[in-house]
Write a protein that binds this DNA or RNA. Structure first.
Length: 388
DNA sequence: AGGACACATTTCCATACGGG
DNA sequence: CCCGTATGGAAATGTGTCCT
């Protein structure tokens, strides 16, 4: 090939600079969010107080009860500050967990409270999975553990990561990036081939060092590897590649959030042109329904959708397949969500997919020609600043 | 495995109606 | 007239599907 190292293409570099400025301007209200980290000792005290109230209740023959929020739906949400959040926090409905009615649930909560208390005291961390296996007969399913931990987070007004409970990392990151962790001066070098696993405890990161000019978030591992094979890192110039392998886990989203906060470089999303791809892009960008309370820490409004846009399929004659029944159901569901309804450009793309009835995967681009993805598609999208 | 949801099932509660 | 039960609807919870 005609050694077109795009990195040295002046129009490409200037496009990146322009996009960077534009995105920073559009999202400058987002730049100062920093977590109110709860100190260990405060959390410990809170747990002790919570347990004390229950003991008091019992000694006064009152039934112990806990209050947790009800599961939210899309109609309870709207977009605030470009992130998914509750319409009206004062209208939030609560559910009471009573000992006589929800014995099991309360037992699990207090059991886990004890474990969390222990974690905080010992300054160690644990995964949901480990917790589950410590007492399978009590928890019955891993989901029970997760629900209970989220309940506890609400009761203590904190987050799973401050409680030191994590899900096992699934995401990969590659590129010129050094991650310095606070504990024992560990340094993760993300330049290794095939990328490295996103660190378990993103909150331990003390410093991120990178020469990258932008980040590309890829929906799935296959496309991630494909891009690495095409040597995207050198062809497009210094950049980072990240994938959550499907629906991103919390750690991956936290890391990406941190990357945006610290490096302030453009973040582009490359997803399939199908309803799931769009949903995944939106999860990164606006946050998710089930983690609604943590949108501040997880949503990254600065993300721009690089492709594949439904309008690209016809414009670039990309091979496509028809949408299935399930795809159509999902698509209509997406169309009703607040973040799509709030954004004319996203709505336009959704409508395009509805009318065309076509979808395609990232891999379909490679059929057109070798290195098409890197040299043509990504490059052209960025130079033309066709991002949504 | 892990994440997000839609859909299904069960549980719960308020209201209304009928029998004692 | 009061109480108990029947019943409908909502909410809590569980299951199944889709994705990588």
């Amino acid at each position: 090939m005609e050694s077109n190292k795009t990195a040295h293409n002046p129009s490409f570099s200037s496009a990146i600079v322009l996009l960077r400025r534009k995105i920073r301007r559009e999202t400058k209200d987002q730049n100062v969010v920093l977590p109110h980290k709860q100190s260990r000792s405060k959390l410990l005290t809170k747990i002790e107080k919570l347990i004390l109230t229950v003991v008091e209740d019992i000694s006064f023959s009152k039934e112990p009860k806990l209050q947790v929020p009800r599961r939210s739906t899309w109609v309870d949400c709207n977009i605030v500050n470009r992130k998914l959040s509750l319409k009206d926090k004062s209208q939030l409905k609560y559910q009471e967990i009573l000992y006589t009615k929800n014995t099991k649930r309360m037992t699990v909560i207090f059991n886990l409270l004890a474990k969390v208390h222990n974690l905080l005291q010992n300054r160690t961390s644990v995964t949901y999975r480990e917790l589950y296996y410590q007492h399978t007969d009590l928890y019955e399913s891993q989901n029970t553990v997760k629900t209970a931990i989220l309940d506890i987070c609400h009761l203590l007004n904190t987050s799973p990561w401050d409680l030191r409970v994590f899900s096992t990392s699934k995401g990969l990151i590659a590129g010129p990036l050094l991650i310095k962790l606070g504990d024992n001066e560990t340094i993760i070098n993300c330049l290794s081939k095939g990328g490295v696993l996103v660190p378990q405890n993103v909150k331990k990161i003390v410093k991120l060092e990178s020469s990258a000019k932008f980040v590309i978030v890829v929906e799935k591992d296959a496309a991630f590897q494909k891009l690495l094979e095409e040597e995207v890192l050198s062809r497009l110039g210094p950049c980072l590649l990240l994938t959550g392998k499907g629906e991103p886990d919390i750690n991956t989203r936290l890391l990406l959030h941190r990357l945006w906060q610290d490096l302030k470089i453009p973040i582009f999303a490359l997803v399939d042109s199908d309803p799931y791809g769009i949903e995944i892009m939106c999860t990164y960008r606006f946050g998710s329904l089930s983690m609604l309370e943590y949108s501040e820490h997880l949503a990254i409004p600065a993300i721009r959708w690089l492709g594949i846009h439904p309008t690209d399929i016809d414009a670039l004659s990309i091979p496509s397949v028809p949408l299935t029944t399930n795809d159509n159901i999902k698509l209509l569901d997406l169309a009703g969500r607040p973040y799509i309804q709030n954004d004319a450009n996203l709505m336009k793309q959704i409508n395009c997919m509805i009318t065309s009835g076509k979808k395609c995967e990232i891999e379909n681009l490679s059929i057109l020609s070798t290195n098409f993805l890197t040299d043509v598609f990504l490059c052209a999208k960025i130079i033309s600043k066709e991002v949504i």
